Simulated scan of single mutants.
Amino acid sequence: MAQTETERGTEWLARGGLRPTRQRVALAALLVGDGENRHVTAESLYAASVSGEEKVSLATVYNTLRAFCEAGLMQEVVVDGSKSYFDTRMDDHPHFYWEDSASLTDAPAEQLEILRLPDAPDGMEIAKVDVVIRLRRR
């Protein structure tokens, strides 16, 4: 029997140790219900949820996305310091940011080569390196 979007969303929440409230399950189903990874903004996820049965406010979407990140289910990718995208793919990988459409997609990690990073300041360690490659038409 095929797994439903709601079942996938509920299992995803359980992996993060989150209580499956109706609103969380509805948003999780939109994010991972088809088994694919995706990049969303709070606004785009809210727009996708408007047609669903479970109504959620934009503030709830923001709070829920933060909870998903804190639970290790998603990662936040910040573009331009003020625009955040949320990615369901959790391994380290680079991104393309398409300036024309303001969208974010995965870039081929096997083509990225970082030869050296600067030393971290005393008492600090490098936790993560985010690579966002901005694209625009010529």
Rank of each mutant, 00 (worst) to 15 (best):
M1D: 08
E5V: 01
T6G: 07
T6H: 09
T10C: 05
E11L: 10
E11K: 07
A14Q: 13
A14C: 02
R15S: 05
G16M: 07
G17R: 12
P20Q: 07
P20H: 03
T21S: 13
T21F: 05
Q23T: 15
R24W: 02
V25P: 03
V25N: 04
A26V: 12
A28G: 06
L30F: 08
L30H: 02
V32S: 05
V32K: 04
D34W: 01
D34Y: 01
D34I: 01
G35E: 00
G35L: 07
N37R: 06
N37G: 10
R38Y: 05
H39M: 11
S44E: 13
S44F: 08
A47V: 12
A47M: 11
S49V: 06
S49Q: 10
S49F: 03
E53K: 14
V56Q: 09
S57G: 15
S57W: 11
L58T: 01
A59H: 08
N63A: 15
T64V: 12
L65A: 09
L65R: 03
A67R: 12
A67D: 12
F68T: 02
C69F: 00
L73K: 04
M74Y: 01
E76D: 06
E76I: 01
V77C: 07
V78E: 12
D80P: 05
K83L: 12
Y85G: 06
F86Y: 15
F86M: 09
F86W: 15
D87P: 03
T88Y: 04
R89A: 12
D91H: 09
D91I: 03
D92L: 13
F96C: 00
F96R: 08
W98E: 10
E99C: 03
S101W: 13
L104C: 07
L104T: 06
L104K: 10
D106R: 09
A107Q: 09
A107C: 08
A107D: 10
A107F: 04
Q111P: 00
L112N: 06
I114A: 04
R116N: 06
R116I: 04
D119S: 15
D119E: 15
A120M: 11
D122I: 15
M124G: 02
K128F: 08
V129P: 02
D130S: 11
V131C: 04
V132A: 00
V132I: 15
L135S: 07
R137L: 10
R138S: 09
